[in-house]
Design a protein around this nucleic acid. Structure first.
Length: 288
DNA sequence: CACTTGACCTGTCCGC
DNA sequence: TGCGGACAGGTCAAGT
């Protein structure tokens, strides 16, 4: 469920917490993926200091002084949690959603010179972490194919609408979830923005009017900006860099609200499957 | 090529 | 209570 707002929230947290720290140790389980090369870990991770934390779509990038970058995708259940005495000292109430770390879902642990640790947890092991030369990151398949960032200031409604021409015959929901159309949209914000624009998720892309695309563009940006402001959505697993929940779900209009009233018209929200995902709509506001 | 479906995993929840 | 199965949803590979 980490989508753009959740990943951005983690990025901001890590940016505050780990820039300037030096990596002193690395531990991982061997069940999946990391490290892609053990030699690179020894040479380009250990002893490296953190110089930046960036995001592109749902991918996090931790840039190192060695000109290598840790590239991380949290997929559904990934977490990146920082723990250090400075933040979670004795007497500090445990505000975290998760308990003692590492735990059984911890895949990678980084240690820093200040005694703190960064834990990459991933219950379902769909996520991944790679150590790549910084200059090669834009060349990985995902980065080459992924669409524009929807919250960039220079991303216009016209440009947004134009991106959908490549998926003319599919449903608007499937197209929104397609990362090559627009970056960072996942199931939660697809449902929320379609409700905002009063568009049924199964509408064919080539039936969406120019006016509807403009509305959808504004709704998507508004929903994602609000979600970032609220620290993202915690449905089950998601936590920020300090292990804390996000509160967007308190503001959701349709997502996970089946059986409850539509906040706009009062009809009962229903759930069904669209584009292979659980999908929530108001049957009065969103008609085919 | 455009599009849809299944696989990847594990924890949780529901019904019997 | 125990247990099997459905479900959760981001992305890629495989299938239509």
């Amino acid at each position: 469920m980490p989508e753009l707002p959740e990943v951005e929230t983690v990025r901001r947290g890590l940016h505050e917490l780990i820039i300037g720290l030096t990596v002193t140790s690395e531990k991982h389980d061997t069940s999946k993926g990391f490290p892609n090369t053990a030699i690179d870990v020894e040479r380009f991770l250990i002893g490296a200091s953190i110089i930046d934390v960036r995001r592109r779509a749902k991918v996090l990038m931790i840039d190192l002084s060695t000109q290598y970058t840790l590239v991380i995708h949290l997929k559904m259940t990934g977490q990146l949690v920082y723990r250090g005495e400075a933040v979670f000292g004795a007497g500090h109430p445990n505000e975290s959603l998760i308990g003692k770390l590492p735990d059984r879902s911890t895949r990678v642990t980084l240690g820093f010179t200040n005694g703190a640790h960064l834990y990459f947890n991933d219950q379902r092991k769909f996520g991944w972490m790679k150590l790549l030369p910084t200059l090669e990151v834009p060349n990985i398949d995902f980065m080459k194919k992924v669409g524009p960032e929807p919250l960039e200031a220079d991303f216009t409604a016209e440009a947004f609408a134009a991106r959908f021409s490549r998926r003319a015959k599919t449903s608007i929901k499937a197209a929104l979830l397609d990362q090559t159309v627009v970056a960072g949209v996942g199931n939660i914000y697809a449902d929320e923005s379609l409700w905002g624009a009063k568009i049924h998720p199964l509408r064919r892309v080539d039936t969406i009017t120019a006016t509807e695309f403009i509305t959808l563009y504004h709704e998507l940006r508004a929903v994602m900006n609000l979600a970032i402001e609220k620290g993202g959505s915690t449905d089950k697993n998601y936590v920020n860099a300090e292990g804390k929940r996000g509160s967007y779900m308190d503001f959701a209009r349709v997502f996970r609200r089946e059986g409850l009233e539509c906040p706009r018209c009062g009809d009962v929200i229903v759930k069904f499957k669209a584009a292979g995902r659980g999908t929530h709509i108001c049957p009065t506001c969103q008609v085919l």
